[in-house]
């Protein structure tokens, strides 16, 4: 490591979740190395929101920063969950895709550049509908190329969580880091209840929601790689450790045989206690790791 963080900053535990997207991104870098790209004063606002009477934000809810983590060149992209639920529109989507592509181009030139995505998002921004959906497809395509060169690390800290199309982006990441306050899933409880009925999913059942989508469960099933406290230093250390680990031998989203057999083995005639799946799934992941 070429640059150490200023440790006095962390004498007292600092909440990571309470930070906004810009602060979350900044704190991951070696002190004083980060620079924001296409920041608020560049005023890359959504062209679609104002025409629908919705106030835009100067960074469109997506912060891109470049700098060093553990002395290595890294780009961090953070979605701001407080703006439009962290949803992906044309601008925020393209910021994410372009940042990943620029990192990829540098890697191809021999300049190692890691990527970290901080995802707090409900997925597509419905005011930009088809451009948001197209953006997510492009983000996914860019992750697939970049992760051949360097680990693409996904952090879901909370409290929005990561849902909708962007849950697929998380699924493609090399490593997923979550807290107990974070959730990860394709469909949120409300949309399941509205589509398939309250008997399928009671969206007022908080315990059920956390039992299924919560960080602790996702980690225990082997669908996330680290479960950290809501502590900025722990988050920094988790990112540093995954950068040090490098590209995994096999990405989780390429483990088709393993997960297909998991699905085949399930009794689909009933709902499951999420805890049932922990023992079976995590055991296999642990076995894979030691092979």
């Amino acid at each position: 490591m070429s640059e150490q963080r200023n440790d006095t900053k962390f004498i007292n535990r600092q909440s990571f979740i309470e930070l906004n997207a810009r602060e979350r991104a900044e704190i991951l870098f070696d002190t004083g190395t980060s620079r924001e790209l296409a920041g608020p004063f560049d005023r890359m606002e959504s062209p679609w929101l104002a025409m629908q009477g919705v106030t835009p934000q100067a960074d469109d809810g997506c912060v891109v920063m470049k700098g060093k983590i553990s002395g290595q060149s890294t780009v961090v992209i953070a979605l701001e969950g407080a703006f439009q639920g962290g949803s992906l529109g044309e601008v925020s989507g393209e910021k994410l895709t372009a940042a990943l592509d620029l990192a990829c181009a540098d890697n191809e030139k021999g300049i190692r550049t890691n990527a970290v995505m901080l995802l707090e998002t409900g997925g597509v921004r419905l005011q930009e509908a088809n451009l948001g959906l197209a953006s997510i497809a492009e983000i996914m395509a860019s992750i697939l190329v970049l992760r051949r060169h360097v680990p693409v690390i996904c952090i879901i800290a909370g409290t929005v969580g990561c849902f909708g199309g962007m849950s697929l982006a998380a699924g493609l990441a090399s490593y997923v880091v979550m807290t107990r306050e974070a959730r990860l899933g394709m469909n949120g409880p409300e949309v399941i209840e509205q589509t398939s009925g309250v008997e399928e999913f009671d969206s007022s059942d908080r315990a059920l929601i956390w039992a299924i989508h919560g960080g602790e469960q996702r980690f225990a099933m082997g669908l996330a790689d680290a479960l950290v406290e809501d502590d900025a230093q722990q988050m920094v250390e988790a990112v540093q450790s995954f950068i040090a680990k490098g590209v995994p031998a096999v990405h989780r989203s390429s483990e088709i045989a393993l997960y297909r057999s998991h699905i085949a083995a399930l009794d689909a005639s009933r709902q499951w206690d999420p805890k049932e799946l922990r023992a079976i799934w995590k055991a296999d992941v642990a076995t894979e790791d030691t092979q």
């Binding site: 697929l168 699924g171 493609l172 899933g185 999913f201 099933m221 989203s253 483990e255 799946l277």
Partner: peptide
């Protein structure tokens, strides 16, 4: 849109196909 799907991580299944 189902509870079983969410419990078993449909997000990863979808990502696996896109992958």
């Amino acid at each position: 849109y189902g509870r079983r799907e969410e419990t078993a991580g449909i997000f990863l299944a979808a990502a696996a196909a896109a992958d």
